[in-house]
């Protein structure tokens, strides 16, 4: 479903070059939740942006559903859903108008978009908010609206960038439920986070990024075997220290 192969990206700095992502490769199958983990500056967001086609890789490629980002970024974008913790809303539009606007951006048929809007709103418990102005919503309600927004075009692959950042317990649980829905819906999911405890509960497989390199990749048991450490936190701490 999602295939990342030897992705590399460098940025010129005043005093040299920063290789933000260095030869990163992984594959994700439908119904699988992959945690892309790493401390701040590890290269998670840059990897995500290259998959989305927002950044052009120096070498390597990302392939979504058989289409390479470099070959046809628009086709790849239409197959991807993207939700970020910093996502905002259009305060002067109603929730329904905003969701239908994004459906229109993804060229979803108007009738189908209406139906998806209703069913997804029902699923995320925001049906009663559909005709309210987005600017009037609480933080938790806005979060649920953006989660629905990411799914309005029914993408086969979902990218979640730090989805739990700044959320309270209820908000985090909403994300957990959401990812569970995605898994059951057969979506390939990439979750970028540095919250290891949450990742351990959420993800089926993990990729540990550090200084742009993918140091380890596999299930929790595979990682424990590879590193000889007892938990994800221990693996992570060991990785950063050594």
């Amino acid at each position: 479903m999602l295939h990342v192969d030897s992705l590399t990206k460098s940025f010129p700095l005043d005093d040299g070059v920063l290789t933000a992502v260095d030869d990163v490769s992984f594959r994700i199958s439908p119904g699988e939740v992959f945690g892309l983990l790493g401390p701040n500056g590890a290269g998670k967001t840059t990897t995500m942006r290259m998959i989305l086609g927002l950044l052009e890789p120096d070498s390597g490629y990302a392939e979504v559903d058989g289409v390479r980002t470099a070959a046809d970024p628009m086709a790849v974008k239409s197959r991807l859903g993207f939700v970020s913790a910093s996502d905002g809303v259009y305060p002067w539009l109603t929730v329904r108008e905003m969701l239908l606007y994004f459906a229109d951006l993804y060229a979803v048929d108007a009738t189908l978009a209406e139906q998806r809007c209703e069913s997804l709103a029902d699923m995320m418990d925001i049906k009663h908010l559909l005709d309210r102005r987005a600017g009037e919503l609480s933080t938790g309600q806005r979060q649920r609206v953006t989660l629905v927004r990411g799914l309005i075009h029914d993408p086969p692959v979902m990218l979640l960038d730090e989805p739990t950042r700044g959320l309270d317990v209820v908000g985090v649980q909403t994300i957990f439920d959401y990812i569970d829905i995605l898994r059951r819906g057969g979506k390939a999911v990439v979750v970028c986070t540095h919250r290891l405890d949450e990742a351990e509960r959420l993800c089926d497989r993990f990729g540990l990024l550090h200084a742009g390199k993918l140091k380890y990749c596999g299930t929790l048991n595979e990682l424990k075997e590879q590193t000889g450490q007892a938990s994800l936190v221990d693996i992570f701490v060991d990785l950063i220290r050594n």
Partner: peptide, 14 residues
Amino acid sequence: ERGTMESLMASPVP
């Protein structure tokens, strides 16, 4: 400022 830029840029519209 609203935080809608990234999701707009991620959409398949030039």
